[in-house]
Design a protein around this nucleic acid. Structure first.
Length: 474
DNA sequence: CGTGTTTGACCCGCGC
DNA sequence: GCGCGGGTCAAACACG
């Protein structure tokens, strides 16, 4: 029920009601008009003949150079100020039931136009997703051709499975992070564990080529896991790892195990909540930054080795940098799980998109949506996935930025993303958009995302509850 | 009294 | 070997 006040008269419009006519109440003594429904489209009514009877609804089509113009003759003198009781206006035609009916139809037209607009936007997002998917596919093939030319044919077959990755991205398990197995290595299978106890500290010299191989290893391993259906995926992974040329297996496995996730997000709070419980165990002044660095450890599980560092950016103190390290050895709280589950698509984009460069792994134009969102650095002591969610990324004019307004549509912000997540193909586009929107809109969400990525990168025992052997040295 | 924070001391790796 | 910087420990402290 929508109530519109106009000077000394009250008009009550009953929206979304398609009945022909119900009732009208007119109190002439108080000059109060109560009309349940109005039909602005009654053909017999001939209201004021001014040009203001026409309402133009102009619909932008998100940069595609298309506009939808809807010319709706409301029969209303909408542009005329209703100042005196003697003025002609719609309420003066209170004797007509056609007025109320036209109101409903008018709103129906508007809603239909909105629906059309949403459908168009949906198509646009679908096209973008397909484009991303194709580019991912091409990128993976390119990597395979560079690193594994002798198995191109097999790899190509396997990559077909990965090509379906985005469309099946939401078909993960229902426990822990719902991360696409085909993208994220390890999972509950423990593939990333260095069984011989080797640690990253034994060899930190990981070249970009090795990083590239690592990235390829993730892709290849996951493809292998999915397609071969073997009982011992670790063996498959090992076979592939050891078949690579010039590959530092020890360093690669250790690197994957020790990778970190860093999140840059604007927040005035001392720490962004991510669903986990943290206990502060130290604080230090880091070199080159006047702001102290706080150290936290996860207290949700007994002897959980996960640490995180929180520090404000020296250049922009409104930016909070949170770095996650380690893997949880316990089930994650529902809050973190539910949030992280919605980030599957975004995570897949982040971790499947980067290409190596001279000074690290930087997103290329292959993944335009993540250009200013994620950076993977191999120059740091630990390879670190950095999510820059401050809108100050390296490419402020990226498509992601341009689409951000669209993604921040209320229907996404208020969406139950878990419901979207449970639909596989049909919900992928919306999931993608919704996850992106949530990431862009909510710093807390980003922390959950970071936790998810952190767990995925370093976690070989994500869901099996087995305590890892990567406990602190002391 | 239990839990979390603070803070100086200590450990360790790395570069010179 | 020494100094530096990052990371962690643990006793003291604060708080509900």
């Amino acid at each position: 029920m929508e109530r519109a006040y106009s000077n000394d008269r009250t008009v009550i419009l009953n929206s979304f009601d398609d009945r022909d006519f119900t009732s009208s109440s007119v109190d002439h003594g108080e000059k109060r008009v109560l009309i349940s429904e109005m039909d602005f489209f009654a053909k017999k009514q001939n209201f004021d003949t001014g040009a203001s009877n026409q309402v133009e609804i102009k619909k932008e089509n998100y940069g595609q150079g298309q506009e939808l113009h809807l010319h709706i003759n409301t029969g209303l003198n909408l542009l005329t100020t209703y100042a005196t009781p003697s003025d002609k206006s719609i309420v003066d035609n209170r004797g007509s039931p056609e007025v109320a009916r036209r109101t409903s139809k008018n709103e129906f037209i508007v809603l239909k136009a909105e629906l059309d607009r949403m459908n168009t936007e949906n198509e646009r997002l679908r096209a973008i997703l397909n484009q991303i998917n194709d580019k991912y596919y091409s990128l993976k093939k390119h990597i395979m051709s560079l690193l594994h030319p002798q198995q191109n044919s097999n790899a190509e077959n396997k990559s077909d499975d990965d090509h379906k990755m985005i469309n099946t991205v939401t078909e993960g398990g229902n426990q822990g992070f719902m991360i696409p197995d085909k993208i994220i290595s390890g999972g509950q299978r423990g593939l990333m564990d260095d069984k011989d106890g080797s640690s990253y500290n034994q060899d930190r010299s990981v070249s970009s080529q090795q990083e590239m191989s690592i990235a390829y290893g993730r892709l290849q391993k996951n493809s292998t896991k999915e397609t071969d259906k073997v009982e011992n995926p670790e063996k498959i992974y090992g076979e592939w790892i050891h078949s690579s040329k010039g590959f530092d297996h020890q360093a690669a496995e250790a690197t994957m195990k020790k990778a970190r996730v860093s999140v840059r997000a604007r927040s005035e709070a001392t720490m962004i909540s991510d669903g986990c419980q943290w206990r502060k165990y130290g604080q230090k002044m880091a070199k080159g930054n006047p702001c102290p660095r706080a150290y936290y450890r996860c207290t949700m599980g007994a002897a959980c080795p996960v640490r995180k560092q929180v520090q404000r950016c020296a250049q922009d103190r409104s930016v909070l940098i949170t770095t996650y390290d380690g893997r949880h050895n316990h089930p994650l709280p529902a809050a973190a799980v539910s949030m992280a589950s919605t980030t599957s698509a975004a995570v897949s984009m982040l971790l499947s998109g980067p290409m190596p460069s001279a000074d690290g792994l930087q997103n290329s134009n292959v993944m335009p949506y993540t250009q200013n969102l994620a950076t993977i650095s191999a120059t740091a002591p630990f390879p670190t996935v950095t999510l820059d969610l401050t809108n100050n990324g390296p490419n402020p004019n990226s498509i992601f930025q341009g689409s951000q307004a669209a993604f921040l549509h209320p229907r996404f912000l208020g969406h139950d993303l878990r419901m979207v997540d449970q639909s596989s193909v049909g919900g992928s586009q919306e999931l993608l958009s919704a996850a992106t929107a949530a990431i862009a809109a909510d710093p807390n969400f980003t922390a959950a995302l970071a936790a998810a990525i952190s767990s995925m990168i370093g976690n070989g025992n994500l869901n099996n509850g087995v305590e890892d052997n990567n406990s602190p040295k002391r």
